[in-house]
């Protein structure tokens, strides 16, 4: 092995045997025990968990990472702070978290391959990639009352006129923290930590009761 960065990193597929090992989403307990009202025609907010996606934290220089991402995923880093961009299929997203940190979300099972290709491409550059798929989960909120629901939950200004599509911020959510992103006109996303998932879920059910919130499973 050459003395490249790749050879010094112990890289393994944390989901290699997922076919034989049962996996539970961070909301598995909540969906069983905290209730999951079915969406109805009156629902102005519909909640759904996008479980088992691949979440990768990329750290390093923006130019180096941007070039590597364009080669590997055919999409670059978002140019502005607090924004996110999607690839052509809309399945993979990259979000600015801090001047040297981005969150890459890819479809489930892809994280290992993407990480390895990025590491091969980045080689000796100064960078870090951490697979945090097991530590957080993505919730989507859809409906016209989502901004009202979020206004009760986060300190950030989520008025649609201020929070354009493609914006994403890390902010205080209830008494925890969450990443709030807007992926469409009436479609919003929350990235919550696994340890706070049940709390945030129950908060959303409680806050969304007046909008007849429904949970799609």
């Amino acid at each position: 092995m050459s003395d490249s960065a790749l050879s010094r990193v112990n890289l393994f597929d944390s989901r290699a045997d997922h076919a034989s090992v049962a996996v539970e989403s961070p909301l598995a307990y909540s969906l069983q025990r905290s209730g999951a009202p079915a969406p109805s025609a009156a629902s102005r907010v519909v909640l759904r968990e996008q479980a088992f996606l691949g979440h990768l934290i990329l750290r390093g220089g923006a130019i180096v990472l941007d070039e590597a991402l364009r080669e590997v995923l055919d999409t670059g880093l978002p140019g502005r702070p607090n924004t996110l961009s999607w690839d052509a299929s809309g399945e993979r997203s990259i979000q600015w978290l801090s001047p040297d940190e981005w969150l890459l979300i890819v479809p489930g099972g892809e994280a290992f391959a993407v990480e390895r290709r990025l590491r091969e491409r980045l080689a000796d550059a100064s960078f870090a990639i951490v697979d945090v798929s097991g530590g957080q989960t993505l919730l989507t909120l859809e409906g016209e009352a989502v901004p009202e629901l979020l206004m009760k939950s986060v300190v950030y200004d989520v008025d649609p006129s201020h929070f354009a599509v493609g914006k994403g911020v890390n902010t205080v959510f209830a008494k925890a923290t969450a990443i709030v992103r807007r992926s469409g006109e009436t479609r919003w996303e929350l990235v919550v930590r696994r340890s706070f998932a049940d709390y945030c879920y129950r908060w959303l059910l409680d806050a969304g009761e007046e909008y007849a919130i429904g949970v799609e499973r």
Binding site: P81, N82, Y156, V169, T171, V172
Partner: peptide
């Protein structure tokens, strides 16, 4: 100065 916008004191 890094986020380039006004944010709530709580953060």
């Amino acid at each position: 100065p890094y986020c380039e916008e006004l944010r709530e004191e709580e953060e």
